[in-house]
Structure formats: structure tokens, C-alpha cells
């Protein structure tokens, strides 16, 4: 049978010490133990009245502990309610155009004082792909991506279609994201 197969050298040549295998086994076991012992100590410490940060393992105990999200995180898109109580949106329709899956539909209107506002603003959350293009397209900082990621899924499609009331969020709650937009995105576009 010899010669029926070809020996392939995968570029791995072991030294004699490695070929003995046993010392390498001990080394591997020691490495694994080196992971086990600090983790064991830290987890035990955290369990008995320590802070969660005492745990050296990065895993987050999700429903009890929430992750700290980066400011660039794109969650549910929301409309900004300005400090005077009115929405910032002027119903220009740029987000509607920019939206790749076409999940936004706006019917615009005019207030008594002549400012424009959306009469209806419907964002279909079941279609949205969380790309953030609406945020980039918006000239008024009226629609931004929030950091909300919970409760976006439903067993029915109907509750996932958000109207204006479901989308409006006070500006105070979005300062972090708005700061981020001004700092990063406008800088990127050389405003």
C-alpha cells in the first residue's frame, strides 16, 4: 500500500520536546488551570456579596444586568420631541426616500404659524433594517437611532407598525446620540 498516498507537509515541524507530547500536555493543562483558578476565585467573590465587576469573566447576566452600549449603537429609530413639546420633523420626506426597505411613510401638513409637520408619520418596525440612513438623511436632527433594543419583537405584525405617538421621544433622553451625531457624522461630512 505504501506509495498509494502522498505525504503532505503542512509546514509544521515539531521539535523533539514537542514530539514527546507529555511535556506539552502538562503545559496545556497548566494553561487551562491558569484560566480556571482566577475565574473560580473571582466568580466566588462576586457571588458572595461582591460587585459584578469582581467577576473577570466578560459574560453579562443579561436580564439582571444590562450591557453598556456604545453611543454608535443603532436601536429603534425614534422621532425627537423638541424642548417646546413639538416634534422636530418638518415632513420633508428625505428619510422616506433614503430608507432602503421603504418602511417610512409620511403625510405632511402645515401648522397655523406656517411651520410644516407630519400629519401622520408611520414607521413599520417589522420592515426596518436599522441601517440608520434616515438619521443621516435628516436635515433637522428629527429622527435618530435610539439605544432601545428590547420589546421590538411581537407575535403579530400590527403592533410593530409605529405611529407618530409611538415614535416621539423627548430630546433630553437622546442627548447622547445627538452629541454623537454632531461630533462624528458632521465631522465626517465636512460640514
Amino acid at each position: 500500500m505504501s506509495g498509494a498516498y502522498k505525504k503532505v507537509n503542512r509546514g509544521v515541524t515539531l521539535t523533539l520536546w514537542e514530539r514527546l507530547y507529555f511535556p506539552e500536555v502538562i503545559r496545556g493543562v497548566l494553561i487551562a488551570a491558569g484560566h480556571f483558578v482566577p475565574n473560580f476565585v473571582s466568580v466566588t467573590k462576586a457571588y458572595f456579596g461582591g460587585k459584578p465587576s469582581d467577576r473577570k469573566i466578560m459574560t453579562i447576566y443579561y436580564p439582571e444586568e444590562k450591557p453598556v452600549l456604545p453611543e454608535a449603537y443603532r436601536g429603534k429609530p425614534v422621532l425627537v420631541r423638541a424642548r417646546d413639546g413639538r416634534g422636530k420633523c418638518v415632513a420633508c420626506g428625505l428619510c422616506e426616500v433614503a430608507c432602503p426597505p421603504k418602511c417610512i411613510s409620511i403625510v405632511g401638513g402645515q401648522r397655523e404659524d406656517g411651520t410644516r409637520y407630519p400629519v401622520t408619520y408611520v414607521l413599520n418596525g417589522a420592515v426596518c433594517i436599522f441601517c440608520g440612513f434616515c438619521e443621516e438623511a435628516c436635515p433637522e436632527e428629527a429622527i435618530v437611532m435610539s439605544d432601545r433594543y428590547e420589546g421590538l419583537c411581537e407575535y403579530d405584525r400590527k403592533p410593530m407598525v409605529y405611529d407618530k405617538e409611538a415614535l416621539l421621544v423627548p430630546e433630553e433622553k437622546l442627548t447622547r446620540r445627538l452629541d454623537y451625531i454632531r461630533r462624528r457624522m458632521y465631522g465626517k461630512w465636512n460640514y
Binding site: H35, F36, N39, F40, V43, T59, Y61
Partner: peptide, 23 residues
């Protein structure tokens, strides 16, 4: 539990009685 700690994981910790998971 040991394999989890060796691999920097947490391991089984969800089953609880009245909120006590006992590791």
C-alpha cells in the same frame, strides 16, 4: 462549571428555586 470557568465562561446558572441559584 469547571469547563466553563476554564474557558472563561460562566456555565449553567439559570435554574433557581425562589431566586436562589446556588452556583
Amino acid at each position: 462549571k469547571q469547563s466553563a470557568l476554564m474557558q472563561d465562561r460562566i456555565g449553567a446558572n439559570r435554574a433557581d428555586i425562589l431566586g436562589f441559584t446556588v452556583f
